[in-house]
Every structure is written in structure tokens, then in C-alpha cells.
């Protein structure tokens, strides 16, 4: 489609148009003014450009469930962060429409000194939930996480699995327009992992939620997603039906 600009007009749609992400890796890391100015005056500020993503384009329609695969360091997480809006691309255009529930590093937005109850409100606010909505759905969140008896305990006493339970529960208590799952399901016990996968499947099957799913488990991608995008060393290698792409990725010759 030459010269035709596609926009993400409907909630849940994503347009990634010719995105390049370049990190300038400084040969040295400057953390102090002194070092920086010394290097600056000696003309020793050298940067090595590193392309985490190279001219990647794809469009995701509302309700699609898309798996993102690739070897470590291929740019999957960079792509997710760009879509989640925390990183802006060096070149190209990204449009994301709708409310995003990011399940990236579960529990990253929590304060370990606060109780679970207080964290649910804090995290809900960060996701953009209304206060009244959290009030009404508080019990459902706690129930899904199965942590009814631990609500007034500071989070520092929680295990990482318990934290993950709460984070997952908050983010999926309602249907976001876009759910981003970044290997989140690797924490937590077997039962909760299965429960999370069931919940994600529910959201996928509702067709109201666009799901973007990063996993190293090819089987999981095949189970959850309809479509799969394979990013390898910053290049878009393959984009198509989940089974086809996931199998191609699994059979890749190193």
C-alpha cells in the first residue's frame, strides 16, 4: 500500500508503520557531570548505534490475538514497550487506540511498603480505572487472586507469585481494549498459571479484546493466539497464522 496512511481508528487496533528503534550505546557510561565534560572536551563521546528494530510494520485489528516470538534480544520487548507507550520509536509511527492493560513485569507498579489493598487502588489508578470501578470490583479482584486473607499485609511480605496474582487480577478484571502479556505467566504456581491462561483465553474468545502475547513457549502461542509475528534480530521475519509461524520459528536452524 504505497503512500496510504493507515490509522488505528477503532479501540483495540494497533498500527505499527515502518518502526525503527535505535539505541545509542555509549562506549562508556557517564554518570557524572565531570566525566561527561571531560569526555566532551576531549571529543571522546563515542556512540555505537544499535538497531533493536529495523523498519518493522504490521497492523493489528480489534479482537485479534497475536503472539510475538523471537529469540532473546530480538526486539520483542522493545516492540511491546513501544506499543505500550513507554518508549517512543526513533523512526516510524505507532498508533494504538483504546485502553491498554499491560502485563509487563507483573507487579512493577506496586509499592512494597503498602498493603495489598492500598496497592490495588494505586495500581488501578495507574491503569486508568475509575475509583468507583475499583470500589465496586474490589472483591472480585481479590477473589480471582485467591488472597482474601492477605489484604492488609504489606506487599513486602508477599511472595513473587502472590504479587503476580494480584497484578494479573487487577489488569484483567474487566475487558481492556488491548491486553499486553509479556511472559507474565511464567511466575506463579501451576494452578494459577492455568487459571491465567484460561482467563486470557476468555478474553481472546470474547473478541472484544486485542491480545498481544509474548511467550517462549511455542505451544502456548499456538494455544492462545490466532496469529503470530516473528521478530528476529530486529527484523520482521514472518507474520501469519499462529500455527504456521510458530512452527517455522520452532524449526529455525541456528
Amino acid at each position: 500500500m504505497p503512500n496510504e496512511i493507515i490509522h488505528a481508528n477503532e479501540p483495540g487496533s494497533i498500527v505499527v508503520d515502518d518502526v525503527t528503534m535505535t539505541f545509542n550505546i555509549a562506549k562508556e557510561q557517564f554518570n557524572s557531570l565531570k566525566e561527561y565534560f571531560i569526555a566532551l572536551t576531549r571529543h571522546e563521546l563515542k556512540f555505537k548505534p544499535f538497531h533493536a528494530l529495523k523498519n518493522v510494520s504490521f497492523t493489528i485489528e480489534p479482537g485479534e490475538s497475536v503472539g510475538l516470538v523471537g529469540t532473546n534480544g530480538s526486539g520483542k520487548s522493545t516492540m511491546l514497550k513501544i506499543i505500550a507507550g513507554v518508549l517512543s520509536p526513533s523512526e516510524g509511527r505507532v498508533e494504538v487506540n483504546g485502553n491498554i492493560a499491560p502485563l509487563i513485569e507483573l507487579g512493577a507498579g506496586f509499592d512494597r511498603e503498602l498493603t495489598a489493598r492500598e496497592n490495588i487502588y494505586l495500581n488501578g489508578a495507574l491503569l486508568g480505572y475509575r475509583k468507583e470501578f475499583i470500589d465496586e470490583n474490589f472483591d472480585r479482584i481479590v477473589e480471582f487472586a485467591e488472597l482474601q486473607n492477605f489484604m492488609d499485609m504489606p506487599l513486602k511480605n508477599y511472595s513473587s507469585g502472590m504479587v503476580a496474582r494480584i497484578a494479573f487480577s487487577i489488569a484483567t478484571i474487566t475487558e481492556p481494549d488491548l491486553l499486553i502479556v509479556d511472559e507474565a505467566l511464567s511466575v506463579g504456581d501451576k494452578f494459577f498459571r492455568e487459571k491465567c491462561e484460561r482467563r486470557i483465553n476468555e478474553l481472546v474468545n470474547s473478541k472484544n479484546v486485542t491480545v498481544l502475547f509474548v511467550s517462549h513457549s511455542v505451544d502456548q502461542v499456538k494455544r492462545v493466539c490466532d496469529r503470530c509475528i516473528w521478530i528476529e534480530k530486529g527484523d520482521l521475519r514472518m507474520d501469519g497464522p499462529a500455527k504456521e509461524v510458530a512452527d517455522a520459528y520452532a524449526n529455525m536452524k541456528r
Binding site: A125, R130, F144
Partner: peptide, 24 residues
């Protein structure tokens, strides 16, 4: 817990519009 059916709550109910989120 899995029977907590996905209750479709549209933007107006669950989320603040983007412009109002910061205050909360």
C-alpha cells in the same frame, strides 16, 4: 473464580477518559 465471567464494562464505566486519569 473462573466463572467470574468477563463483564464487558465499556469505557465510560471502568476507565477515566485519558485526560482525567492524572488527577486520580
Amino acid at each position: 473464580a473462573t466463572e467470574l465471567a468477563p463483564k464487558k464494562i465499556k469505557d465510560g464505566d471502568a476507565w477515566y477518559p485519558t485526560s482525567q486519569r492524572d488527577m486520580f
